[in-house]
Design a protein around this nucleic acid. Structure first.
Lengths: 223, 223
DNA sequence: GGCGAGAATGACCCTCGGTGTCATTTGATG
DNA sequence: CATCAAATGACACCGAGGGTCATTCTCGCC
């Protein structure tokens, strides 16, 4: 009953980049290292020779593991290329799950996203930028990011419903989840276009702008 | 220069269900019939034996065409299963492209979506319902729908920018595109849960509710 | 009505992502 | 140290999707 599921812990650990945290069991640390090695290899090889031109075998060889280990670690070839993206949203969901600040929910989500980003390890900025650049160039990766975000959106809406004690199908929750993530998405696009200048601080500033654009958009009228 | 690209016409024709419209060249009518036969076969077989358990060969055989024709007609196995969904969004984009009504843009998009839906052929309701039921049961199809909608969202934002003479990167446009489609998505979910009762009229009513939830969501506060 | 050009189709090949199996290795535990 | 569980690697397999090429059909023109 009180059995610890290390697999879950290990993923959270990856998020913080503590893949050699001595507090983790050795077995878990090894799994994390494999995961990180594969994700790094993916970032490198996909950028170098393209997504389609990279086979799973090459990826596995670059990370010095077997193809079997790859397929057990990632649910798809694409997933290895967007680890940084996945880390962000996992941290975000965890933050929201820990509690939504009082006040307008959209502001709370904004705050949670900023907090989550603050907790990511130092290498995240560069890895995220690389991920997003790949996504722009490779349709398959872009598609996968969309898919991943849609799942996060669902979990977010469900988490909010639990937190705020509202019906899980409350339209407002779904709209809010969509809004928060769209705001980030828009900010991210601009940030990447600017080469990621200013690091995550600048990305956060863009996010704040995008959040402000939400109420403004409702006032936009044709003609 | 004035050469007609029939392929585009044929897709629009499929939308209206006029796959035996005598005004179309015979060659195009045949292509449309193949397309429709494959989409229908997909709806049938995917529901019957599951998405994964259906091979392209079986699909092709059911529609009495070759596997080659399938891969030339659809960009993925999933695409055949969500034709009804695709028809809706194609009609929507076409409507928006024809002009956005004056007044608040979100209302204009709401109107455009309603108009687009009104123009779909009579078999659409049932086919759309079947499509959505499949999407709920089959993760692969759900993922594909997300991907498809994301592409529509981009085109919508771009189309709005052109129509309203705004910058293509204007945050408000992206937010609005997201909002309109999310509203439909939420309404659709409820409609499917209710077994599609009331046909498209009832779906439209749900859409109106969802659109109204947008400003309401911004007022939602924690605690 | 017949003819030539071009488009669509079908039969066939191949690559590779993803799954399942099974033996082997390695970390955890008492 | 012995036992057990979990992770790994080697291997075989299926099927989606892409490419090639010969064949068939539609269209525009004579």
């Amino acid at each position: 009953m009180s059995r610890v599921t290390w697999s879950r812990v290990s993923y959270a650990a990856t998020m913080a980049g503590m893949d050699d945290d001595r507090s983790l069991p050795l077995r878990e640390r090894k799994k994390l290292r494999n995961r990180r090695a594969l994700a790094d290899a993916a970032l490198r090889l996909f950028a170098e020779r393209g997504f389609d031109a990279t086979t799973l075998e090459e990826l596995a060889e670059e990370a010095e593991v077997s193809k079997s280990t790859f397929t057990r670690t990632f649910e798809a070839k694409e997933a290895a290329g967007i680890e940084a993206e996945a880390e962000l949203w996992a941290a975000f969901l965890a933050t929201v799950d820990a509690g939504v600040p009082k006040g307008p929910v959209l502001d709370g989500l904004h705050r949670a996203l900023a907090d989550a980003m603050a907790g990511l390890d130092g290498t995240w900025d560069a890895r995220f930028l690389a991920t997003r650049r790949l996504a722009v160039a490779e349709p398959a990766l872009l598609r996968y990011v969309e898919h991943h975000r849609a799942r996060v959106r669902e979990q977010l809406a469900a988490g909010l419903a639990a937190r705020l004690d509202l019906d899980a199908e409350d339209l407002r929750l779904h709209v809010l989840a969509e809004l928060a993530m769209t705001a980030f998405s828009i900010a991210g696009r601009a940030w990447v276009r600017g080469g990621g200048a200013g690091g995550r601080a600048s990305l956060l500033a863009g996010l704040a702008d995008a959040i402000r654009a939400v109420p403004a958009s409702l006032d936009l009228a044709a003609e």
